[in-house]
Design a binder for these strands. Structure first.
Lengths: 206, 206, 206, 206
DNA sequence: CATGAATGAGGGTTCATTCAT
DNA sequence: AATGAATGAACCCTCATTCAT
């Protein structure tokens, strides 16, 4: 009887109301597995990229492949889940820095530092964001939904304070910094932070 | 990324003495084939990326797959050959701009414009450079061998003229700009040139 | 590099002009393989049905799986190719019997005998025809395109000769007989020919 | 058809003494579950065939998969249970028709009508009976055990009354009619009843 | 007892690479 | 020298069946 495929992807644990990709009421073993899985996927993504074979992730987690498909019907669901925590933390840091730091520009600098940490620590994240493969669209969307508003607010504050020239679009900045972080670990001669510092310099009101 | 059957390639047509990947004494038909191949590969790389199936390139060129393997034993050899012309032109423009332009910094700006053209026109080039896949190492090497000295000279001249602050490493600049060019065509909201302008602003001596 | 599937199915050797699924101008080894493949598929279809794993057919033929996909992009292409000869022979017998036999009804009886041979010898054919799986639609189509006109002519002749009552639809008859042939070999107690004889009896003008 | 993990099943609920697959002394909830299950399975069988995934049936019934396995250790057990009622009714109609109808042949005709209803209404039944998959052997067995004697009695009566020619085997008739019912709903051009009428015509004494 | 999570064999498909023609 | 047929490893994904909870 027809094996006619179909795929809908529900990202079931991504409804925005929970705090990190693990459902509240879940059998203990299932939750344990999900955690093992996320940890394993994170490691594998760093080592072999976000396109690593499902088998490899399953093996690393010590579970069957089916378990991955159960928890994360599409690869994107897994990728999003893996990076959700990190993205969340970064997003939350924005407003806090704005209220704590001496000036909006300082807050912006510090937040971008965190943003770079996010991309640099998790090699796979930058790769996935950069990939034009449509299967990472949901990650893209989640990433921007969460972080672009934060960047917008920081840039607006700095612009209002007259510290930077207006006109830079938050999306462009995030994406540019994201791009600069690609391949940071391939080569000791390349340190994205130095370039990002220059970029921010270029942004300051003369 | 797993499908990495690794093969030590010699990039045989890249010995620096010839002018573009086509040996001087070659049967007419073989040369014709090479040219068809390079043209086809260039088109395919733009459309489907540098990881496009060999078959697709062969089909577009109207030759057999074996012919590709004969002329370009590894994928990297083909990629290098495809981009060699463009890289060469860009490299040669450096000294010329330095002697023509009003100031070293202006020369630098103009040269970077050309460099960006190179990466932006040829979607596949940026992709290949960015890829951490070891099979593109030869392209990487060729690219840097040829362009880094040019960038060095331009930066040194501008630094000596006191137009920019010293300390930026040419490699880092090239790579950064290369990264910024990634994905330029996915999204109309993202224009790498605006960011590169900011970067150069940040480089100027205050 | 997007793995986005697509499938078009060209049934390349089935253009109606050749006489049995093997192209005229074909490398010797390729033709040999195609023949091995058809033979192997025929055997496997009998033993394991037309849904047998591609791997199994490849193994039996002593070729790689890719070879099957090259020659027969879809399963249906293979199935059609396997049964094409037989269907063709059966179709051609119709007019001949009509001119040779003593009466149209006798011709009809004999032709149906051949038709039953076709379905009974090739266990897989009946199975495939019966399957509601859409992937066998091309087989269905080919089968009917070729045989329904033959049946129509025989029935019309017998009706005109007043030997059978009119009104039976050729499609219905073929399909019914096809159905009766299902499972003929599971059980010695069941002989479709006896029932088919009854059916033809029932068709005779009283 | 390969996925045949074969399992010797006992069709535990089919001991002939109970009235429909539900044990007499059973906890109320268990019985409720069984009924939900049978209803769900019947619906799914019609829609997706008797090879539908267990999950799908479980979901439709609103129970876990384990519950299905508990009540019906093998798929065949479930299939038998689903069709048991219908088969039973059909079997019981035989003697009644024989005593009510004007002649044995009329009784036979009417009974076969009911028999066709059975197969045509329940798409899955014909499919399962036809399948050569050994896992449906128990269904086969049950089906014949119950209905063949009925058919025998009707045929014998008609033969004794001189209405039909002798010699047709009841098994063959049932099976033939079963086969004719296959695919009745795929195609409006095909109506098994017309053919079955012909078959019975052919059976009449001249 | 019921649930449904986990397992993993099994089948489909692609495509780099080799090598007969 | 060119061709493109053949190979088969490597991926993907589904779902029957078991068994922890």
């Amino acid at each position: 009887m027809p094996r006619d495929h179909e795929k809908e992807s529900a990202v079931p644990t991504t409804d925005g109301s929970d705090t990190g990709g693990t459902a509240r009421h879940m059998r203990a073993d299932a939750r344990r597995n999900q955690e093992k899985l996320l940890a394993a996927a994170a490691e594998v993504f760093v080592g072999s990229g976000v396109d690593a074979p499902i088998r490899q992730i399953a093996a690393r987690a010590g579970v069957g492949m089916g378990t991955i498909y159960r928890h994360f019907p599409t690869r994107s669901d897994l990728v999003v889940a893996v990076f959700r925590h990190q993205i969340e933390e970064c997003a939350e840091a924005g407003p806090r820095l704005l209220s704590e730091a001496g000036s909006p520009f300082t807050a912006l600098q510090r937040w971008i530092d965190l943003f770079v940490d996010l991309l640099v620590t998790k090699h796979g994240l930058a790769q996935a964001l950069q990939s034009d493969n449509s299967r990472f669209a949901p990650l893209h969307a989640y990433f921007l939904d969460r972080l672009q508003p934060v960047a917008t607010r920081l840039l607006d504050a700095a612009a209002e304070a007259g510290e930077i020239r207006p006109g830079i679009h938050p999306y462009e900045l995030l994406r540019g910094i994201g791009n600069l972080c690609i391949g940071h670990d391939d080569d000791p001669r390349y340190d994205p932070r130095r370039l990002i510092t220059l970029l921010l310099q270029g942004l300051r009101r003369p």
